[in-house]
């Protein structure tokens, strides 16, 4: 259940690409995100502010939603998601700006009803533009807190993220960006039947590097290429309980009934390599549609290697 929901989340965090930072569930509300919202409200009342509201919808398909190693455990499914976000720009200096915002999102799976989720996310980012104009290099530090609530509540999670990014538009056609991301997902420990192994299977920590390039074919059409290197906890769900992995390789294990009554989720240490190819077409000045294909290749401890292929269609509208 990892990297894919990042499609919406990652897209929310940056414009050119792949931003998967770990488990792909959505952002949700927590005291921390409430704090971010509070900061936002205070800022709005204390300074002239520039609001931007945007919305997005996407359709995607994952051929291995549970990140399973064995072919017999792989569960493909499609999902639909929608996002509504509001961001406020608060200039701090001549080339420094603070962006505070919040995002509401929801995701519905075609078959895996337990994975339906709704999220609220609050974020703050400080962006420095190293010059004036569209082609000035920029860097950005961002923190966010989110809460995701699932249909099957045992997966509910609070997500903390921090990222450092930099980028530069080389010219009208080429736009480059790269970033380092940290993510901590805190979930409630579940029931465990494996002696000596933590039952906190849905909490994760991960770090990732991303690099993205976007190339404009025309005024309306652009192509993008993104890459991801992530290391940290991964969760792999098998449809039946069993000793798939040496206990020494397991960090946690817990039942995962969203995939079936006998399914078990295993948390392992792993490294993921990802690539994303995408194309966007601007329908109007305010909206675009896009198609993308993401491929993830994960190598986790205990020989738990698996892949995900995720095609996706998106629609974005910015007011």
């Amino acid at each position: 259940m990892r990297l894919r929901s990042c499609l919406a989340v990652g897209a929310a965090l940056h414009n050119v690409g792949m931003h998967c930072q770990g488990p792909r569930t959505f952002h949700k509300a927590t005291p921390a995100s409430a704090g971010a919202l509070l900061v936002l409200c205070v800022a709005c009342h204390t300074a002239r502010s520039d609001w931007v509201v945007a919305t997005a919808a996407s359709l995607s398909h994952d051929d291995n939603v549970g990140d399973a190693h064995n072919h017999s455990d792989m569960v493909p499914d499609s999902s639909t998601s929608a996002t509504l976000s509001a961001f406020d720009l608060l200039p701090v200096g001549r080339s420094l700006s603070l962006v505070a915002g919040s995002e509401l999102s929801g995701q519905v799976y075609d078959r895996l009803d337990g994975l339906r989720n709704a999220s609220i996310d609050g974020l703050l980012s400080l962006k420095k533009k190293w010059g004036i104009g569209a082609f000035a290099a920029w860097s950005r530090a961002q923190v966010s807190a989110a809460r995701s609530d699932y249909e099957d509540g045992y997966r509910n999670v609070t997500i903390y993220r921090a990222s450092l990014e930099m980028g530069k538009r080389l010219d009208e056609r080429w736009n480059l960006a790269a970033g380092y991301n940290f993510e901590r997902r805190a979930a409630a420990p579940g029931a465990s039947e494996i002696y000596g192994v933590s039952n906190d299977a849905f909490s994760q920590t991960g770090r990732s590097f991303t690099a993205n390039a976007q190339y404009a074919l025309s005024d309306r059409m652009s192509l993008s290429l993104g890459s991801l290197l992530r290391h940290g906890d991964v969760i792999s769900t098998a449809l039946t309980a069993g000793h798939y992995y040496p206990l020494t390789d397991l960090k946690a294990a817990a039942p995962d009934p969203a995939f079936g009554p006998t399914a078990y989720a295993y948390r392992l240490d792993g490294t993921t390599y990802g690539i994303k190819l995408g194309a966007n077409y601007s329908l109007t000045d305010h909206s675009l549609i896009g198609g993308a294909f993401q491929r993830f290749d994960t190598h986790a401890r205990g020989g738990n290697n698996y892949t995900n292929s995720v095609p996706q269609l998106t629609w974005n509208y910015q007011f």
């Binding site: 929310a12 965090l13 414009n15 915002g101 538009r169 995408g278 966007n280």
Partner: peptide, 16 residues
């Protein structure tokens, strides 16, 4: 013409 896109694919608003 190639203009800097106003909406660049982000789900949320993206300030430069």
């Amino acid at each position: 013409t190639i203009h800097v896109p106003r909406v660049s694919g982000a789900a949320s608003a993206d300030y430069p």
